[in-house]
Amino acid sequence: MAVYGRTYRAYSGPLTPERQRPWVITRYGLAELFDSRFFLAQFLLCFIAPLVASIRIYLGHNSEVIAIFQMAASQVEKLLAVDAAVFRNWVLWPQSVLAFLLALSAGPTLISPDLRNNAMPLYLARPLSRMEYIAGKLVALLIPLAAVTLAPTLVLYLFQCLLAGFSWTGQNLWLGPALAAACLVWILALSLAVLAISAVVKWRPVARLAIFILPVFLSGAGLILNLVLKTQWGSLLRLGDVLLAIWASLLALPLDPGSVSPWAAWAMLILVSALSLLVLRLRVRAYEVER
């Protein structure tokens, strides 16, 4: 095709390697997400909590600030000490909540519009498989979620290492990978679940409502189960409890009394992720066959 000639001509130029095709989906997905001012604002707001946490870490290592407190150095040290629990409470927990809110606004814009507008035949008529399409969309969601969870967590860990010196770093070398795993486990399960819900509920606002309501509903159901059956197994339906148990196992933190066991929490998270993948596999197809 030539613009001036306006006639058809075949393409004989170079082609990109096929393994790069899912990345096209990711790139366009990211462009669409950051095209929204609301999403961009929400994304930037997610960095306020890590900023506060960085101040908290800095205070713990600043002798002039410690002097202002007019307390015994040992007391201040205890108050401002940085350990795995601090990372969980000051970084992981707030960032995970913010990541959920970010996924709430981003997730339904990725797959559901394609399904609602019958775009799947266009994607799948090209050398692209269903799983590659899902992987492309998944990475498009994982990247901003990792940017607000994994990236600040690791930056703060490195900041702490820098300020605390070799002794603390040597004792807490394991903490970096553990924090990274804690973030990845959460954002991966969250992304899969959000994409699966938005693949089932094709209408964007309803998908958002479903993503928001479902954890609240399950949390309530879990609480009722615990109260009625006098058990702790209902906590497996409570997202927060499951997450705390998994983080406790990764960060070597003590479990709260009455919380679910880490292995059960892991099993639950793997089950939810597997179910989400199954739903995505079933829903993401060129055409649905009416029986």
């Binding site: 082609l15 035949p121 994607y123």
Partner: peptide
């Protein structure tokens, strides 16, 4: 068969890139 909320250029370019261009 469309992708909602994008321009014509965006739509056709995406399909071209998925085809390997």
């Amino acid at each position: 068969a469309f992708i909602a909320g994008i321009s014509g250029v965006h739509y056709v370019r995406l399909m071209a890139e998925l085809s390997g261009l």
